[in-house]
Amino acid sequence: MSRPDGVARRTIDGAERLATRGAPVYGEPTDGEWRLWDARRSKLGAMFENGMETGLSDGDAVLYLGAASGTTVSHVADFAGPTYAVEFAARPVRDLLDVARDRERLFPLLKDARKPETYAHVVENELDAIVQDVATRGQARVAAENRRFLADDGRLIAAVKARSEDVTRDPDSVFDSVLSELEETYELLETERLEPFHDDHLAVVARPR
């Protein structure tokens, strides 16, 4: 599996863990300029921890959908290039602003990921990657709507939460319908469950059709 150089394995608190270089955000332990990337608090962290091929590299231009208070996107901005963070709930964005103030190329946007036209005048085209963690109904549609930002050889890296689509249905059947909808706009490269770090989440790496 390949990993950006900016995402390293370091011995922190006696165990070998993922880490990035940047200002601490959520009270995570540090080792010099490296700070621990806690896979239990981050689905993208769990994907790296499980050895998935994300296709992410140092300096990538990234659109992050569902940034919340910035836990994961802070690590992305540590190794990536320009990083656009979209989140539609005002409350967590207060913390996201603090995270962005500590980083040179993290651009916070209070926007709705289902309405890309409200930020297409800000986010550039031909991006290397979209990281999506919106935990809301219609996750496949969000990915399809945001396809317009990706370069043809770009990557969609999504964490799909079964319970957000339908709490009553069996997660596997929810994943099946989300994946088949995704396949209308993307070619799936890898899918994997995120246990033991996150229950009932499916990680997906895909590229535009």
Binding site: E117, T118, A120, H121, V122, V123, E124, N125, E126, R148, F149
Partner: peptide, 11 residues
């Protein structure tokens, strides 16, 4: 307040 249907190479 702005909007655009499609992104471009803004930089």
């Amino acid at each position: 307040d702005g909007s655009a249907a499609a992104p471009r190479d803004w930089p």
